[in-house]
Design a binder for these strands. Structure first.
Lengths: 190, 190
DNA sequence: GAAAACAGTTGAACAAGTTCAACATGTAAA
DNA sequence: TTTACATGTTGAACTTGTTCAACTGTTTTC
């Protein structure tokens, strides 16, 4: 069943009954995205919250200097959305690009609201997920302050080898916050 | 009334009835912290979630190189806690120090859980608050990647002049992720 | 009110990371 | 299969930020 991964993901955080899970998952519809295609591009309003079933995405911003600055990668079993754009229905600054042929489950804003209203536990679920995400963003910022680019690079490829293997060095550099030329030099000297 | 600020803060995000608000605020108890004293030090388990009524706090980590790395400042009308330590009852890495004589409202874990169970809207409240916080952490990371220390410094003192005025340059440097000697040079050259 | 402790400044040498340009290599497309 | 375009590598010069040490000025503290 295509919803198994989603069910497994949410029940890690909050327990739901079988019927609740059915209602929950029914509101998601699946979408396939070919490699290099975009699920969202900057300027659009993010009308969905997504869960990755297959493949991998790169979520990035193009900053004022024209650099592609990667916020995060969303592989299988990850969520992806632009919260700011989704919550406030304002144009997004984010781009979400498939790194390979991918499949996502999407829920739109109306259905998400319906879900919140129908099941208070869904509020709890996303409260917990958001708080967990907060912890990792805090850690990432501290790591950026505490470690050199070289240390961050080796930490990244060690912690996420399966994601790293799908990425070009340019994309990894965009995640680490360095230029790809410098990443090339890091790799040579080690 | 001492709870007015808290009530105003939460009703910005979710509407509550008067009686709900009373039950809500009753579970908080106030605590005064003198300048330079700590609300939490690393190694302790964070047993509270706090809301600042008066004063200001600096929330920082001491990294492996011995540098004080500031995650954020919590002034009046801000929340502060170590989510990771609070949720999982594990020792905290964080230090929360009062920058001036301060007053906070605290709720402990049991009461917080009781609140979640009693009012599903409280789940919604903290879900929304967490999601808003997520957006600003994402922005902060991108800003750290996109801007020089000088740009970040002027952005900070412009955006938070009242907090900045309470801080030493060492503390500001710890927030920007640079050494205080370098901050001194930034200020001179401009 | 003196001593100690801490915050801020400065300079010089250094390390980390960028920029730009040139070239090599791989890969998608016609 | 060749063209075209992206990615990756390298070097040299440069900018940003660090380190350490010495000095000055301010607060605490006894």
């Amino acid at each position: 069943m295509t919803n198994d991964l989603l069910i497994k993901n949410i029940t890690k955080n909050v327990a739901f009954s079988k019927t609740e899970l059915e209602e929950f998952t029914q509101l998601f519809h699946s979408k396939s995205i070919k490699k290099k295609e975009f699920l969202l591009t900057q300027g659009e309003i993010c009308k969905f919250e997504g869960f990755v079933l297959e493949g991998c995405f790169r979520i990035f911003i193009i900053d004022k200097k024209g650099n592609e600055n990667t916020l995060y990668f969303a592989a299988k079993d990850w969520w992806l959305m632009d919260i700011d754009s989704f919550m406030n229905q304002i144009p997004s600054n984010l781009n979400m690009q498939a790194l390979e042929d991918s499949k996502v489950l999407l829920i739109n804003k109306q259905d998400k609201i319906a879900l919140y209203d129908r099941f208070p536990k869904v509020e709890k679920l996303f409260r917990i997920m958001s708080q967990k995400a907060l912890v990792s963003w805090q850690r990432r910022l501290i790591n950026n302050h505490s470690f050199t680019a070289k240390e961050r690079y080796f930490h990244f490829i060690e912690k996420y080898p399966d994601i790293a293997s799908k990425l070009t060095d340019k994309q990894i550099a965009g995640y680490l916050g360095i230029r790809h030329e410098f990443l090339s030099k890091i790799k040579r000297q080690s």
